Amino acid sequence: MLEVSELTKSYHKVRGVKDLSFQVESGTAFGFLGPNGAGKTTTIRLLMGFMKPDLGSARIWGLDCWQDRAELKRIISYLPGELHFMEQFTGQEFLDLIEGMHGAHETIRKNQIDLLRILELDPSQGIRKMSKGMKQKLGIIAALMLDSPVLILDEPTSGLDPLMRKTFIELILEEKKRGKTIFMSSHHFSEIERTCERVGIIRDGELLAIQDIALLKQKERQTFDIEVGGEEDAEFLRQSGLTLYPLDHHKFTIQVEGEQELLWKTLAQIQVKRFQQGSLELEEAFMHYYHSSLRGDGT
């Protein structure tokens, strides 16, 4: 569905992106993670055909994102990271304009009405008077109402409150059920974790890794909360070489990176009263992965 091959773009003295290569399968969601300035928005602008790459290519549905950019607009719904509206319009006038540009289909109007209700937006208000969160809702509605098979979303929940972020996640999960292909950059790790099967990690314009989210969480740092039977067991645990964080008396948090053989050998030799594996948040896994790469521990 979406294929990027050795994609490169430079801006004079400012780094863009270099040698990006990845694929997004049809009907799946792909998350793009990285700090500000890492190259996420540049990648999206190249996918949208807003810029010509210096080297490499990007293709969606077999169409070249630069050479076939006009045709691609018929199959892509796009939500930019920085929204700019015609401030003199009301929300409804803006949505009507977008609808008219795409043929004013009955399906689009029905989707629009449903999305206005779900996101609790009054479209009669002037855009100039809307808050950032309201404008973000308007942008989401304009993108999703078109029912395009491909969604490209740049920081889609910026400015939304936690309740509306939850609602947005539910909308994206529904889009996936309908077979949509989604490319989404975000700073909110929870929404990537809940909506995407795979994630790309980008730093300074270069792709560090492509990982299945489940594998990324498994592969990196894991934590375990444990309570042992007594002081003798606690001392054995302290001398084991495991990374321990004391909690209270004979209670510890154990942190394990990579192989867990030492953990299980140690536990087999002591009395364990309570043992619970902690759930690793995607954010923690990403930050560990990111900083390990900065230190040169791996990619």
Rank of each mutant, 00 (worst) to 15 (best):
A29Q: 05
K132F: 04
E175K: 15
K177P: 04
R238W: 00
H250E: 06
K180L: 11
E284R: 10
G296P: 09
K52C: 05
H288D: 14
V4E: 00
K110V: 15
R117T: 14
M1A: 07
D19M: 00
G56Q: 07
H187A: 06
G159T: 12
P53E: 04
M1F: 02
G34L: 04
I108L: 02
P156G: 07
R117G: 14
K166G: 07
F94L: 08
D154S: 07
D64L: 10
G16D: 11
R74L: 07
H187W: 06
E220V: 07
T266K: 03
E87Y: 05
S185H: 05
M51E: 15
L55H: 10
Q277G: 15
L171I: 15
R45T: 09
R274G: 11
H291E: 14
G133W: 03
P53R: 06
G91S: 09
A58S: 13
I98A: 04
T107Y: 04
I213K: 01
P162M: 08
F224S: 03
L146R: 15
L144I: 08
S190T: 14
S10I: 09
I140C: 02
K13C: 00
Y11N: 08
F32S: 02
D147T: 11
M130Q: 09
T181G: 12
F94N: 05
V150L: 12
F252C: 11
H12N: 09
A234M: 02
S5H: 02
H102F: 15
G103W: 03
I44F: 12
I152D: 00
M145H: 12
S10D: 10
L2K: 01
E175V: 12
G91K: 05
K251P: 02
G126V: 05
L47I: 08
G27Y: 06
S186K: 06
L151R: 01
G91A: 09
E257K: 13
P53D: 05
I118S: 12
A58Q: 04
R203K: 12
L247C: 04
F183E: 03
L237W: 11
E3D: 11
S240Y: 08
F236D: 02
G39K: 00
I201V: 14
K110H: 14
Y11G: 10
E259A: 13
K265E: 14
G49F: 02
V199R: 00
E106L: 11
Q67T: 09
L63S: 01
K273F: 07
E3R: 08
F30D: 04
E257M: 12
D248K: 13
L146C: 11
R295I: 08
S124I: 09
T41V: 10
K265M: 02
Y290P: 12
E220T: 13
H188T: 11
Y11V: 10
I182Y: 01
P123K: 07
S77N: 04
K132D: 06
L83Y: 08
Q222A: 11
L7M: 08
S158H: 06
Q211D: 13
E99K: 03
Y290R: 03
E99R: 15
D114L: 13
L83F: 08
D64S: 09
F94K: 00
K219Y: 01
T28Y: 01
M48A: 06
M184L: 15
F252A: 09
E261N: 14
Q125N: 13
M86E: 13
W66Y: 15
Q211A: 10
K73P: 05
I201R: 02
H250L: 07
V17P: 10
